Amino acid sequence: MMVTCMEPDEVLIDAEDRMQKAVDVFKDALQGLRTGRATPGLVDSVRVNYHGSPTPLKQLANISVPEPQQLVIRPFDQSILTEIVKAIQSSDAGMAPNSDGRLIRINVPALSTERRRELVQRVGKFAEDARVSIRNIRRDANKHVEQAEKDKTISEDQMKSAKDEIQELTKKFEGVVNDQAKHKEEEVMNE
């Protein structure tokens, strides 16, 4: 996606927007990771086969947390109860749903030390993926300003200044990812 007519300010705005989206994707990935307590985010990634199309569970049911170790799922349409159970069982959430014909209860057991370490590794992988995305965005933005300088639409000083600002954005968003990852790792290990 090489567009040569972007001004340095436009490149910076575009890079910042894209970096924010990378951080948002990372935060969403962390939401689905289990800690020691139940949260509706544990089933956010579950897709249910509803009339032939994979539909997010939260669009098909009310999800509540009546106790710290339990999720309760109340489908809006009782006829899809078995489809919801199948979707939860086949997801990578690793939970066993119990259905009474009206609603589904999921008991969230405490995490073993080994499982906690696995989750910390997944947090690290998600964080590294986010940092790689941010660096790729930095690379693209730098190419834009370099091309603008080659095309003589900006001066060499403007290019250097824009690259410095792009690097500052990169540091800022990598710092957000690192802070979020550290917080989630502590949450996983201490819950």
Rank of each mutant, 00 (worst) to 15 (best):
E114T: 12
N178I: 07
K58P: 04
V3Q: 14
R135N: 06
H51I: 09
L169T: 01
K163G: 10
R139Q: 13
G32A: 05
A29E: 13
P109T: 12
L42M: 13
L119H: 07
K172L: 11
E165L: 13
D140E: 15
I137E: 15
R115H: 13
P68I: 11
V120S: 15
R122G: 00
F126A: 05
S64E: 12
V65D: 08
R117G: 11
I13V: 08
D157E: 15
N136F: 08
T55H: 01
Q89A: 07
T35F: 01
E67R: 04
P109W: 09
L42T: 05
A22M: 10
N107F: 14
A87P: 09
G36H: 11
E114C: 14
N49K: 08
R135F: 10
D17W: 03
D157C: 12
R102I: 13
Q89P: 08
K150M: 08
A127T: 03
G124P: 10
R138Q: 15
L30V: 05
C5G: 12
V25H: 11
Q121N: 14
F76W: 15
E128H: 04
A93G: 07
P66I: 04
S155K: 00
A61S: 12
V11D: 07
D179G: 13
K58T: 08
L169D: 02
V177Q: 00
Y50M: 06
I106G: 12
A181N: 02
G101L: 01
S99I: 01
E191I: 00
I137T: 14
L33D: 03
I104P: 06
V72F: 10
P75D: 04
V25P: 00
V85P: 10
V65Q: 07
E156A: 11
R122K: 14
H51P: 01
E186Q: 13
V11K: 00
D17E: 13
N136K: 06
R105I: 10
R102S: 11
K58M: 13
I80P: 04
H144R: 00
L169Y: 01
